[in-house]
Design a binder for these strands. Structure first.
Lengths: 197, 197
DNA sequence: ACATAATGTCTAGCGCTGCTAGGGTGATGT
DNA sequence: ACATCACCCTAGCAGCGCTAGACATTATGT
C-alpha cells in the first residue's frame, strides 16, 4: 500500500472517530433527539453522505458511541474495585462508580442501556468491552459463590433501575446515596446461604 | 345544556378514548416508533387535525396512555397483595405481578416508565393512580418501618431495571423467576435492623 | 322558512427527519 | 499530458409532527 493510501486511511480513521465524538458531545449537550444527521454533518464540517460512508446509518453511529462507553465504564468500575481492597466495600465502590458514570454522562448512558439497540448482551457476539464491564460486577463476589452471575445480574439491574428512573425524572435526584447504601447492604446480606462477598 | 350538546359531548368523549386505545394497540402491535399521527388518524378513521382537537400533540396522547396504565398497574398490584395475606409472600407476589405486567404489555410499560415524559413523579401534581400504584409497594412493608418509602423506592427501581433490561434484550428473558426470587429474598433480609415486612 | 352565525372536519402545506442517487471535481498512476 | 479513479457534494424522496384556511353541516334568531 502506498504512503498516500496509508495517509488517506489514517485520515479516514480520524474522521470516523470525529463523527463518534461529535455525536456524543451533541447528545450530551442537547439530548439524543437533537442529534440529527444534518446537524451532525454540519458539526464535523462534511456533508450528510459522508456519515453514511462511515456508518450504516444513524443507528450504527449510536452503536459506536455505546461501545465506546462500555470501554470507559468497564475501566471506571475496575479502577473503583482495585482501589478498594476489602470485598464488602469493593461492591459498594463499584456500584457507586456505576451510578456516578450514569449521572455524569446521561446521554452516553442512554445510548448504552436505554435506547433501542442491536448490540448483543450475554451472547456469543457480545463486544469484549461489555463483557469486561459485567465481569467487574461478578468479581465483587466470592469465587466460590455458585450464583455470582445471578448476583451480578440483579445488582446491575437494580443499579440500572435507579439510574434510569433518576435520569428520566421519575425518582428525585436527591437520596441516591441512601438508595445505594440500602441496595448494597441488602445485596451483601446473607438471608439464604453463605456470605456472598 | 341541550340534549344535542350532551350527545355531542358524549361522542367526543368516546372518540377521545378511542384515540387512546388505538394508540395503545398500535404501539403494542408494532412498537411506539410505528405510532405516527398519520397512522393513528387513519386507524380512528378521522383526519390528523382531529387528534389535535383532543390532545395537545403526540406527547399528550402518550401521556394519556401512560396514565391509563398506572391505573391498571395499581389495580393489579393491589389484587396480588390482597390475594396473599402473609407479608413476606405479599412482597413476592406484588413484585411478580409487576414483572408480569411489564412483560405482557411492553409498549404500555415503556410509555409509563421508559419514554421521555412530563408526568410528575413523587411530586404534588403526581396523578393519583400513580401514587396509588407506588403505595402498593409501600404497603408491603411493616408500618413501623421508618424507611418504608426507601424500601419501596429501591424495590421498585430494581424491578424496573429487570423489566427494562429484559424488554430491550439486554438480559436474557429466561431466568426472570430466579432474579425475582433472589431480589425479594435480599430485600426482605435483615442485615441492618428489624424485620422490614 | 330563511338568512346568519357557529361548529366541526378536511385538504393542503410547512419545515423537519433519515437516507440516497447522480454528477462533478480533483488527485493519482501511466 | 492524459485517463482513471476515488472522493464528496448538491439535490431530492418519502415520511414525520403540526397547523392554517377552506368547506360543510348544524344550530340559532327573525
Amino acid at each position: 500500500m502506498s504512503a498516500i493510501a496509508k495517509r488517506r486511511e489514517r485520515e479516514r480513521a480520524q474522521r470516523h472517530q470525529l463523527i463518534i465524538t461529535a455525536a456524543r458531545e451533541l447528545a450530551e449537550a442537547e439530548g439524543w433527539e437533537a442529534v440529527t444527521t444534518r446537524r451532525l454533518a454540519e458539526r464535523v464540517e462534511y456533508s450528510q453522505p459522508v456519515l453514511y460512508s462511515h456508518f450504516n446509518g444513524k443507528g450504527a453511529i449510536l452503536r459506536a458511541v455505546a461501545i465506546e462507553g462500555f470501554g470507559e465504564l468497564g475501566a471506571r468500575l475496575r479502577r473503583a474495585r482495585l482501589a478498594t481492597p476489602e470485598p464488602p466495600e469493593a461492591l459498594h465502590a463499584v456500584c457507586r462508580a456505576y451510578l456516578e458514570f450514569a449521572a455524569e454522562q446521561p446521554a452516553l448512558y442512554q445510548a448504552m442501556f436505554v435506547l433501542p439497540t442491536d448490540v448483543k448482551f450475554a451472547h456469543a457476539e457480545t463486544p469484549p468491552p461489555l463483557r469486561a464491564a459485567f465481569a467487574e460486577f461478578v468479581s465483587c463476589f466470592r469465587s466460590d459463590n455458585l450464583r455470582r452471575e445471578l448476583f451480578a445480574e440483579v445488582t446491575w439491574s437494580a443499579l440500572h433501575g435507579i439510574a434510569a428512573l433518576s435520569d428520566s425524572g421519575r425518582i428525585p435526584p436527591d437520596g441516591q446515596a441512601e438508595r445505594l447504601d440500602f441496595l448494597v447492604t441488602q445485596i451483601a446480606g446473607t438471608p439464604g446461604g453463605p456470605a456472598p462477598l
